[in-house]
Structures are given as C-alpha cells and as structure tokens.
C-alpha cells in the first residue's frame, strides 16, 4: 500500500505541476489546490501508515493502544489543510483582481500589462 500511495503522491504532484505550468490563471488555482493535497499526502505517507488505530486514548485508559498512528504529522497536516484553504482564497481573489485590473487571465499577457 505504501508503494501505491507513493505513486499516487507522485501523480498528484505531476498533475499539480502541469496545472502550475499552464497559462491561464484559473488553472494556477487548481494547481495550487492539488499541490496542497499532494504535500499533505506526502507527509502522511512518510509518517507511516496505520489502519484503524487513531491516536486517541481510549476512555478510561491513560495511554493510547500500542501501534497507534503517529499524531504529530496529523497535527501538522490538519493546520496545513486550513492554511491551504486560506492561501487558496487569497490567491483566488488575487486572480480575480488581476483579471478586473487588466482584463486578462493569461499569465504571459499579465506579464506585459504590469503596472
């Protein structure tokens, strides 16, 4: 499964890079979104995969069961998901504003209409 997930991460990254290399600004946004997924899954897979044993101490116990999932990468990813959303919102509005200001959503044209 680890190998399969590694391939998935690679594929998601490749798709994100393809979108980031596109000329339309809206596709940049999609690329950013996929890049976030890819990075989260990268950390998630690298931390090791554990099935059906979340990092939660059972009620009444003092310690989590042995072999539970590593909580630190999960905490990292959780905030990363929310921050990705905030950054994506900012990028989306930037794209919208760039279009309003210059009338184009082509990065190469935006380059020449810089003001």
């Amino acid at each position: 499964m680890f190998v399969i997930l590694a391939l998935l991460v690679g594929a998601l990254y490749a798709a994100a890079f393809c979108l980031l290399l596109a000329r339309t600004t809206t596709r940049l946004l999609f690329g950013l979104l996929l890049l976030g997924h890819a990075a989260n899954l990268l950390i998630f897979s690298a931390a090791g995969l554990v099935r059906a044993s979340p990092a939660i101490v059972p009620s009444g116990a003092e310690r989590p069961p042995p072999g539970h999932a590593d909580p630190i990468p999960q905490a990292l990813i959780l905030t990363a998901i929310v921050i990705s959303f905030a950054v994506l919102a900012f990028a989306a509005v930037l794209v919208q504003r760039a279009h309003q200001a210059s009338g184009t959503n082509d990065t190469e044209e935006l380059r020449t209409t810089e003001t």
């Binding site: 979340p54 939660i56 009620s59 959780l78 905030t79 929310v82």
Partner: peptide, 12 residues
C-alpha cells in the same frame, strides 16, 4: 480534546 473535533473542525 477527547474525541475527533476541536477548534479547527468546529470553526469550519
């Protein structure tokens, strides 16, 4: 603090 949830999830 005890089960899945928290400030991020609640806020969302």
């Amino acid at each position: 603090h005890n089960e899945p949830g928290g400030g991020f999830i609640g806020g969302l």
